[in-house]
Amino acid sequence: MRYSVSHLTTLKYAAPVQLAQFNIRLRPAAWPGQVVSDYRLTVDPQPAQVVDGEGGYYINEARFALRKPIAQLRIESRFIVEREPLPFFVTGSSGPGLADLRERAMKKPDLSARGPASYIFASPIAAPERDIALWASGFLNDAMPVMEAGRALMSAIHGQFAYDSGATAADTPPIEAFHARHGVCQDFSHIMIIAARAHGIPAAYVSGYLRTLPPPGRDRLVGADAMHAWVNLWCGEELGWVGFDPTNDMLVDADHIFIGMGRDYSDVAPLDGTFRGSSQQNMFFSVDVAPLN
């Protein structure tokens, strides 16, 4: 599948702010089964310079500063992406058992942003939680193949938790969403990551997009999509990283568009920054994922 993706973010301030600096993480990182072309980033007011680089984990990051005071900032990211279907050998595989996987991950001499070692231990948002670990123990064991374990976690979250866009905020701790049994894709991904790491499975948070389909007989609404989040589990050298989407109880496939992965949301947040001033900030966004064939 080929898609045209646009992501428009607008920041409005009640009064002008000064010395604003921003980090943008919207340019897709290279990923198997995905080819990106025609990437464009537009910023208004236009900064003197935009510096492209890599984030702390597997994410592209653009940085810029605005020297003059601003009352509004408009950021638009656009690109074309082609996604291939999930390979058949992934869907039909079971992968190594969890005990074997833990040993492999700890011994693998790879400290890069795609190596499993970076995703075994606690991170700022996905900290260890005893209640989540005990909950996951009810359907995981050391002999279980990793793909089976990933499906079990994914299906349990989908079956036991209710999607509610108004139930949590971006800074809601995962344990609160866990006890309330509701949340959004960010919450479900963090819960799955904490549960997986508690049982020795390297687990990463993925930021991206998901093609959505309109109800039967209705036109697709332009700009009505949003960013999505799911979990990558390292499933051994044979399979590498495999995506699990607990929000939709499905393996990540051709309708998922990869932007980047980190230990949790804090590593891959699409936008963050600082400014001087005490003005209230409001953020608005519009995302459109349009199929091209």
Rank of each mutant, 00 (worst) to 15 (best):
Y3K: 05
S6L: 02
L11H: 06
A15F: 13
Q18R: 13
Q18M: 05
N23G: 04
N23L: 08
I24R: 03
G33P: 12
Q34I: 00
V35Y: 13
P45T: 12
V50C: 05
G56D: 02
Y58S: 07
N60H: 15
A62I: 01
F64L: 06
A65N: 02
Q72E: 06
I80S: 11
L86I: 11
F89Y: 14
F89T: 06
V90H: 13
S94Y: 14
P96S: 11
G97V: 14
L98D: 12
A99Q: 08
L101V: 07
R104S: 04
P116T: 07
S123M: 02
I125R: 05
I125C: 00
P128G: 07
P128A: 07
F139R: 12
A152S: 07
M154Q: 14
M154A: 03
Q160G: 10
T168E: 02
D171V: 09
G183Q: 10
V184C: 01
V184M: 03
M192S: 04
I194F: 04
A198W: 14
R211N: 12
P214V: 04
P215N: 09
G240Y: 14
A254L: 15
A254Q: 13
I257L: 13
I259P: 06
Y265A: 14
V268C: 09
G273R: 10
T274K: 00
S279P: 07
Q280H: 11
V287K: 09
V289S: 09
